[in-house]
């Protein structure tokens, strides 16, 4: 290893207990990634990811692993936005998220935004593996730069698999050093906040929502499988969240 960044892996396992509610036999915080169980709604378990330090900084390697067992219901949120910052160590930072949901399990993954601060260099990789019959609500939001600031370098790949088949594989790269045209009229067009919402439900296999345009720069589209994706761009984090919240409320309706 040439970098001296922080390495941290937080782990969550959610299981259906004997009383029909969700227990958390594994809830492992690690360094800057602190996990807290909070009060959930109904029979779900709710976990809050609390950043105990700033970061990730250049050279850091963060990971979060979550596993939801059959019939268990987990809701993950975070206490504040994650801010990618430049660090003392050379090289990019990495943030890896690995999610597994068993048949009949449900995960609602609704953390706060990831903010790419000027001079930062972060590579995010998210892999979601769902068994047939699993349910998912997954949101990710990226904000390019703090207020009035240029963004850092950010690449984020999201792969969602259902029953071994890839439903979605998408990578966004932006900021200094990203491939050309990232801020142009085909990719981000000057927007500083982008987000995705993936919703997977077995009942979408019978009848998936129709594609529709949401406001000025967002759209919902059915994927090949029992799932939909909302892609949204907005001038800032607040307006982005509003679009994604409305889309989710309409789907949850």
């Amino acid at each position: 290893m040439t970098t001296a960044g922080v390495r941290a892996t937080a782990r969550i396992a959610a299981r259906l207990d004997g009383r029909g509610t969700t227990a958390l036999p594994v809830l492992e915080s690690d360094g800057p990634l602190a996990l807290r169980r909070t009060r959930g709604r109904g029979d779900e378990a709710r976990v809050m990811l609390v950043g105990a330090m700033s970061g990730p900084l250049g050279g850091d390697r963060f990971a979060v692993e979550a596993e939801v067992g059959a019939g268990a219901r987990l809701h993950l949120g975070s206490a504040a936005a994650t801010i990618a910052l430049p660090g003392q160590s050379k090289g990019e930072a990495r943030y890896d998220v690995r999610i597994d949901v068993a048949a009949g399990g449900e995960l609602r993954w609704l953390p706060e935004q990831l903010i790419s601060a000027q001079g930062s260099d972060l590579c995010v990789s998210t892999r979601v593996d769902l068994a047939a019959g699993a349910r998912l609500v997954f949101r990710e939001e990226q904000v390019l730069g703090r207020a009035g600031e240029d963004p850092g370098r950010l690449s984020s790949r999201l792969t969602v698999r259902l029953d071994g088949r890839t439903l979605l594989d998408q990578e966004v790269a932006c900021g200094p050093g990203a491939p050309g045209g990232w801020d142009g009229p085909a990719v981000l067009g000057g927007h500083r906040a982008l987000g995705q919402l993936v919703v997977v439900r077995p009942e979408f296999g019978e009848r998936a929502p129709e594609p529709r345009v949401l406001g000025e720069s967002a759209a919902l589209t059915p994927l090949v499988g029992p799932a939909v994706l909302v892609t949204a761009l907005a001038p800032d984090a607040l307006r982005l969240r509003r679009v994604l919240d409305e889309a989710l409320a309409a789907l949850d309706g």
Binding site: R157, T159, T166, D169, Q170, E171, V172, A173, P179, P185, A186, V187, L188, G189, L194, P211, R212, V213, S217, A218, A219, L220, T221, T231, A232, L233
Partner: peptide, 18 residues
């Protein structure tokens, strides 16, 4: 096929639906 690139263009996708 996982080794294939997955570079995406949000505006192309949103614009296509519109």
């Amino acid at each position: 096929v996982d080794a294939l690139p997955a570079a995406s263009a949000p505006l192309l996708e949103i614009g296509a639906e519109a």
